[in-house]
């Protein structure tokens, strides 16, 4: 099911146009929203929530009209902002319960869900502490908890791994993945860190200068023409290149000890030929995988094209 349909959305701040007749269909599941600074990612999310009024265009989120059913949209959507934010003077449980009540839960239900959601987000031990005393990583988690407490059908995450250290990032990404893939909550993630998107999302929408630049499954975006292979040797070897050519493999490029090859047969045939080439060259193959571009390369290509 599609979670949002946007048609010709235009948003202006004074004379600056942030979104220019933006048209897109956001599918369900976990979707990444990519784009350089100022491409309109945050503006898009803010417009969905009704924080800014579009100058033209229309859209629906989970069947609710943007700009008309803002309250219904906000009830069905959870928003994790990029900025540091919390409600001052409350403990974590009070804060998340309050967010739940604002989200339309009854008082008793809000308190119960606050405990459950905090536990799920890994703040179980710290839930009676004041939010002001939280570390960066905990603040990110509680932002997720307050977005999740009222049981939204769609989560909007703006830079969820901002400022986290490697372990903290890994845990946050696992949470996002678990929410979207096991708990059936649709997720729209905006991030600068493309490997994060690569690891959590199935689809990507690329925004550039306020317009839709590319959209598709991440696997498709990463695919390389002609399905070449990447072969990594223990050390670089000129003999290997020669032997590979003799085996009928086309050598497309080399960087350090990594060679990009193309065979005309099945994948296992290409690997077998590479093995033979390595054996005759007397070198050791350390890695053999189908060459893909990183999402970053795909992204840079999409916005420069």
């Amino acid at each position: 099911m599609d979670v949002a349909e946007i048609q010709g959305l235009t948003v202006r701040y004074g004379r600056f146009t942030a979104l220019e007749s933006f048209t897109a269909v956001v599918p369900g599941g976990c979707v990444g929203l990519l784009g350089p600074n100022g491409a309109g990612k945050s503006t898009f999310i803010r417009t969905l929530l009704g924080f800014v009024q579009p100058a033209a265009g229309r859209g629906t989120v989970l069947g609710h009209e943007v700009g008309r059913d803002d309250l219904a949209i906000r009830r069905a959507v959870g928003y994790m902002p990029e900025q540091d934010c919390h409600i001052p003077g409350l403990s974590a449980v009070q804060y998340v319960a309050l967010a739940g009540e604002l989200g339309g839960l009854s008082k008793a239900q809000a308190v119960r869900r606050a405990h459950e959601v905090l536990e799920y987000c890994g703040l179980g031990e710290a839930r009676y502490r004041m939010v002001e005393t939280y570390s960066t990583g905990m603040k990110q988690r509680i932002k997720l908890a307050q977005a999740l407490v009222h049981g939204p059908r769609l989560l909007l995450l703006d830079e969820p791994t901002n400022g986290l250290d490697p372990i903290g990032r890994e845990e946050m990404l696992q949470l996002v993945r678990s929410i979207s893939h096991e708990k059936n909550v649709n997720v729209l993630v905006s991030s600068h860190l493309l490997p994060d998107i690569e690891r959590t999302c199935d689809e990507a929408i690329v925004l550039f200068q306020g317009r839709l630049r590319a959209q598709g499954r991440i696997d498709d975006l990463k695919r390389v023409e002609g399905a070449p292979y990447e072969i990594e040797l223990r050390e670089a070897s000129g003999a290997f290149v020669r032997c590979a050519a003799e085996e009928g493999l086309q050598v497309l490029g080399a960087e350090h000890a990594v060679y990009r090859l193309r065979g005309d047969g099945a994948p296992e045939d290409t690997v077998a030929r590479a093995f033979r080439a390595a054996r005759s060259a007397g070198v050791q193959v350390r890695r053999a995988v189908p060459a893909v571009r990183s999402l970053e390369d795909a992204f840079l290509e999409a916005i420069s094209g």
Binding site: A72, R74, G104
Partner: peptide, 13 residues
């Protein structure tokens, strides 16, 4: 200071 309005106004409030 705490950007709390982002929390309040992103809820049906």
């Amino acid at each position: 200071r705490a950007n709390a309005l982002l929390v309040y106004l992103s809820k049906p409030c």
